[in-house]
Design a protein around this nucleic acid. Structure first.
Ligand SMILES: [Mn+2]
Ligand SMILES: [Mn+2]
Ligand SMILES: [Zn+2]
Ligand SMILES: [Zn+2]
Lengths: 165, 165
DNA sequence: GTCTTCTTGCAACATTGTAGCATTAGGCCT
DNA sequence: AGGCCTAATGCTACAATGTTGCAAGAAGAC
């Protein structure tokens, strides 16, 4: 239920920045013919702003502690919609729950790193998963998902000290 | 609950083959200090013999239709044990359930192809996921998982005809 | 402001996997 | 062959992650 990451905050941004972000998310949603609701707005902003992919649960917690609680189902549906519209991407993190990230450039795909100690997922923007290979006859590749597993920098520092989740 | 694949059969193998396989699985299990039970034996044989990774559910169905029904939990535990012992590997198929495959050569890793139409997963023995890359400082990679997504040969043949699952 | 239709929230359900615990059975020893 | 110890099994209950159906609410066009 709880997330180890700090909750979603506007952090060190000016009010102007916030307004601009807000407008941008609002416009991207409206441009796809969807209604601009507080859920879609909040989720899309969080994904656009966030630096690493978030799980449904983390998003729910963050929204709740920002004072905008939501039903679980609504969140699932908002996320589904964002993914359908190409505004977000769904990532199989190596654990049982999907993670979501905002899509800035639809053409750019990248690999991810999953820390097996703390469960954190980070984007490897520089690493593009190479899809083209000699496949069995008749197979057609549409995309490639590459996930590196290991230990993140934070977990490495404490050496033996294993942080939960 | 049901699997689209044909259930596990001895197919076109001689009784001698079966005995040999049986002995081999039995020995591999005993060699790790585990007790040789009908569950571990049956599961390991199925994984060794199988050509593509199977889900827990598919394994359960196959065992049941071979007349050796098992409790779900027992199957999970047998699979966990085989993975711990390095006799099987767990694969994140892109759907919500793990898939399992027998380990022949512990050193050899390969990528997989997930058909987004029928859900089938096939091994790409020839494709080794390249792990070494420039990671952020302090990150340590232990393994890489590469999954190609697209359409398998069977689903491609029927063109528009989409088979469920 | 009204109306239409998309979106939400709730309750119920589905799937996939785990934990606790009493019972069974593998396999070693005699 | 029989007994014993402990690992493995099977049940039940539970946890985590999603999904479905439907009545009520709200976005935004008019
Ligand atoms: Mn990413
Ligand atoms: Mn494989
Ligand atoms: Zn970590
Ligand atoms: Zn297919």
């Amino acid at each position: 239920m709880a997330s180890p990451q700090p909750p979603y905050r506007a952090s060190a941004r000016s009010a102007d920045d916030d307004v601009l972000r807000h407008v941008s998310a609002r416009e991207r949603i409206a441009a796809r013919g969807g209604r601009v609701t507080r859920t879609r707005l909040a989720v899309l902003e969080m994904l656009q702003h966030g630096s690493h992919p978030l799980s449904h649960d983390e998003i729910g917690d963050a929204l709740a502690s920002a004072g905008v609680a939501h039903d679980r189902v609504t969140l699932y549906r908002a996320l589904d919609w964002l993914v359908e519209q190409g505004l977000a991407r769904r990532i199989a993190g190596g654990e049982r729950a999907w993670r979501f990230e905002g899509v800035r450039d639809a053409a750019h795909r990248h690999a991810h790193f999953h820390c097996d100690r703390c469960g954190q997922v980070v984007c490897l923007e520089g690493l593009e998963p190479a899809p083209a290979t000699a496949l069995p006859n008749g197979f057609q590749v549409e995309r490639a998902e590459l996930v590196l597993h290991g230990q993140c920098a934070t977990c490495g520092r404490g050496d033996e000290e294993v942080r939960p989740r």
